[in-house]
């Protein structure tokens, strides 16, 4: 028994713990269709002559994903009647923005209040799923759309309706938000290990780790070049 215990102790001190996170490199047919035949995109060349009521831009080239959204609004109906987009990024970034535009444009448009409620999960569901590691980093279309709606609110003097994106919950188990991670990076925690020492983020809820890593890189790039 004594020997057994010692072995267990050794296990907890081992350098690397066995991990089960083999993920398949896989896109659904719907993702591929939207990637190869993107819908409702607007090329930069044509963007100048496109009369949009609101424009939103999120992401950064350094992060590997950047999205721009243009909307036309019917003010009386408080409804987005057309959404266009452009995207720099991987297949899932392009496909998810394309899908979002389809969701907004179908059935003659979408009420602004409904558009504001779109979550990444809603887009992924319509895409029939995405590889987990792609989920957080590449689905930014909803944020670009909200930015465009905010732009519309600003331009149409509806300042009271503007929603300033506050902090975003990253790990529901620890309550850590993106702002917490931003601050931790500013304080010098520049690796996942160091962030976890500080915040315990993703220690038990491992699903959020890819997003945490993405944010670490993003803020490192932003503040330290």
């Amino acid at each position: 028994m004594k020997k057994m215990k010692k072995e267990n102790e050794m296990e907890t001190h081992s350098d690397v713990k066995a991990k089960v996170d083999s993920q398949k490199w896989f896109y659904t047919d719907i993702v591929k269709d939207h990637f190869f035949n993107p819908k409702n995109f607007l090329s930069e060349k044509k963007a100048n002559s496109y009369k949009a009521d609101g424009v939103g831009l999120v992401g950064s080239p350094a992060c590997g994903d950047m999205m721009k959204v243009w909307i036309k609004v019917n003010k009386e109906q408080d409804k987005i009647v057309a959404m266009k987009w452009s995207t720099f990024g991987c297949a899932s970034a392009i496909a998810s923005t394309s899908m979002l535009s389809m969701m907004v444009n179908e059935n003659g448009g979408m009420k602004i209040d409904d558009a504001l409620k779109i979550k990444p999960q809603d887009i992924v569901k319509r895409l029939g799923d995405l590889p987990t590691r792609k989920f957080h980093c590449s689905v930014l279309g909803d944020k670009a759309l909200r930015a465009a709606i905010n732009d519309y609110f600003r331009k149409s003097n509806q300042i009271n309706r503007m929603i300033i994106e506050g902090s975003r919950l990253i790990d529901k188990e620890t309550g850590v938000t993106d702002k917490d991670i931003e601050e931790a990076v500013l304080e010098g925690a520049d690796t996942l290990e160091k962030i976890q020492q500080k915040l315990k983020v993703g220690v038990s809820n491992k699903v959020c780790i890819p997003e945490v890593e993405q944010l670490i890189r993003f803020y490192k790039e932003k503040y330290f070049g």
């Binding site: 831009l57 950047m66 720099f88």
Partner: peptide, 8 residues
Amino acid sequence: RNISPLNL
């Protein structure tokens, strides 16, 4: 490039 907002 046609669907990319970037122009570095």
